[in-house]
Amino acid sequence: MGIKKKIFIGFAIIAMTAGLYGYQEYTRKNENLSHVKANFQIQVNALIKEFEENEKKANEKFLDKIIAVSGTIRDVIKDDKGYYSIVLGGDNKMSSVRCSMDSIQDDIALLKQGNIIRIKGVCTGFNADELLGSDIILNRCVIQKK
């Protein structure tokens, strides 16, 4: 095989690999978090405390990270399109962690207020409102079985 042919084949392989990688990246979906290891394991009260004490510092630590939060269910909300949110309550009635559940979850309807649970999700930030209280929002949440 001539040197030119070898170079051509080399370039073709690189181009195909790059193309395949590009296509995979382009069509990549958000990962199902069921099998992804959490960056943080934390109790609901401790997480709320970190955000209420110093939102900036807590954002730097938790934003975009996968957090597994343990706590008591204060509310299970189903919207008119069938999507669920689970509210984990802290000691303070006006503070909570709100978990917007991934649509892949099918066992949410069985959950009830007062159940103790661990939920894993991506932290999208902190909302503090004078009237409505403060909430940490987790997206793409899944129930962590163990």
């Binding site: 382009y26 930030g125 902190f126 409505l132």
Partner: peptide, 26 residues
């Protein structure tokens, strides 16, 4: 979050931008 005061007609919305979910991660 949304708050409507029916007495005054005042209406407020707030969202966290990172809370938007797309079909594609990229």
């Amino acid at each position: 979050t949304c708050v409507l005061d029916t007495k005054t007609g005042s209406l407020q919305f707030a969202i966290l931008v990172k809370g938007f979910e797309f079909e594609r991660a990229l």
